[in-house]
């Protein structure tokens, strides 16, 4: 059999792969194209060539104040991720470097909280938010997103920290490093890549969270998910403007996502697939 891949084989595989990739990417591509069309163009039938107007982007900002939900998304996603990291790093650290017999059970239990369906606690959470005046506030939603992503953050950090070999820490101790020096010179530099990918992945998850962000906000703290969802009942024809808003909502996270593909797999499978 042919060990050397024939050129023909490669060309066929390439065409097939690009075709599949194009079909999968098409809805996103078409959204971007439509966002560059005028409204009449957008409903005038299938066309891949827009007139190239940026008017829709300007309209979305002037008419719907796009910047506010965008900033809310940034505040909520980044804020909740950093908060989760601050809480999770010590926990993941302790579990990775001084594991006990119960460490595994604790990790499993943490993951199980992630499996609690959101709707099951919708009523009490909604009532609590209402009674404490947290509805439609940044602080309320940030805490919410922190809590729902905390188990994943602990898990991801744990799988990364566990890969730092114990012998290196011992070597540092033999070399005369004290606890503080061990943390500054050896542990932190080795842990930073894992923390960075956890940060990245969690921002993506928080940015796209679409249950609590929609249900617990109205305007003040509403992020892009709620902003876009509010377009579901159309007021007249608005294809092009909707596309512009959608493009702006997904663009930043799409780009972040492209950078994090590799970490995505091990992060979301809790290290089960690498």
């Amino acid at each position: 059999m042919a060990r050397v891949v024939t050129r023909q084989h490669k060309v066929i595989a390439t065409i097939a792969a690009w075709l599949v990739a194009f079909l999968i990417f098409f809805p996103i591509l078409y959204t971007i194209i439509t966002s560059l069309k005028t409204e009449p163009e957008a409903i005038a039938g299938f066309s891949l060539i827009p007139s190239g107007t940026f008017e829709n982007y300007i309209t979305v900002q002037t008419r719907n104040d796009y910047i506010r939900p965008f900033m809310n998304s940034v505040i909520l996603a980044v804020g909740s991720t950093i908060l989760a990291l601050i809480i999770a790093i010590p926990a993941a650290w302790a579990m990775a470097f001084s594991p006990t017999k119960r460490t595994k059970d604790v990790l499993m239990w943490m993951l199980s909280t992630k499996m609690m369906p959101a709707v099951a606690v919708l009523v009490p959470i909604y009532l609590m938010f209402r009674d404490f005046g947290l509805l439609d506030t940044h602080i309320g939603l940030t805490v919410m997103l922190t809590l729902i992503n905390l188990p994943i953050v602990v898990w991801m950090l744990y799988t990364y920290f566990r890969e730092i070999p114990g012998e290196i820490l011992e070597a540092a101790r033999m070399d005369g490093a004290g606890l503080w020096q061990e943390i500054v010179y050896v542990l932190t530099p080795m842990a930073v890549p894992g923390i960075a990918s956890t940060l990245l992945l969690n921002i993506i998850l928080a940015w796209n969270e679409s249950f609590w962000t929609i249900r617990l906000t109205t305007t003040t703290a509403a992020p892009l998910t709620a902003f876009i969802a509010s377009f579901s009942s159309p007021q007249g024809l608005f294809w092009a403007k909707l596309s512009a808003a959608s493009t702006m909502a997904i663009a930043p996270i799409l780009i972040l996502g492209w950078f994090s593909q590799k970490q995505l797999v091990r992060g979301l499978t809790f290290g089960a697939v690498k």
């Binding site: 290196i168 070597a171 101790r173 530099p189």
Partner: peptide, 20 residues
């Protein structure tokens, strides 16, 4: 005494070099 105070040096099986 702590390892560092014993005046010994160790070469590990995995070498334990600092990768960064």
């Amino acid at each position: 005494n702590a390892p560092a105070q014993r005046g010994l040096a160790m070469v590990f099986q995995s070498y334990a070099l600092y990768p960064h």
